[in-house]
């Protein structure tokens, strides 16, 4: 299945520089519909208002972390199938295991490169 380059993607990160990096990488990959939110609460509000094809989220944010956002998404009937990739500096085994248990589709440790992001998006959204 080919990647749908028109699908809207939500990038959730409290660091605008990281949002900008991911936006540029996604643009290089051909994705034009990229939206962003600065924490889980803001992301959840956007997810309720628009159907996104993918969520790419950081873990450590306030007030709502990416881990909490993931659990909210998976608990919500209308959102539970939304593909979710965690992009984070949290690299301990317990974090990866907890995210997988909570239903994350893939996990990227910062710092990362364009090739890693591309391969995870392809793995999650089908290439």
């Amino acid at each position: 299945m080919a990647l749908d380059l028109n699908m809207p993607i939500l990038v959730v990160d409290d660091y605008q520089t990281m949002v900008r990096i991911i936006r540029n990488l996604l643009k290089q990959l051909g994705f034009e519909e990229v939206d962003d939110a600065s924490d889980g609460t803001a992301a959840l509000a956007k997810l309720k208002n628009r159907k996104y094809g993918l969520v790419i989220s950081d873990w450590n944010m306030e007030p709502m972390t990416g881990y909490e956002l993931l659990r909210h998404v998976r608990a919500d009937e209308g959102l539970r199938t939304t593909p979710f990739i965690m992009v984070t500096a949290e690299s301990k085994t317990e974090n990866v295991i907890a995210a997988k248990k909570a239903g994350v589709n893939n996990y990227i440790v910062k710092p990362f490169n364009a090739a890693t992001l591309k391969s995870k998006i392809e793995a999650v959204c089908g290439a």
């Binding site: 949290e90 690299s91 301990k92 974090n95 990866v96 907890a98």
Partner: peptide, 22 residues
């Protein structure tokens, strides 16, 4: 919320090991 932050000497688990899990 498992907020461990970046580890002192780089990632605790390598990306390859995470990939194997997924």
């Amino acid at each position: 919320l498992l907020l461990n932050g970046p580890q002192p000497n780089g990632p605790a688990v390598a990306q390859d090991d995470i990939d194997a899990l997924f």
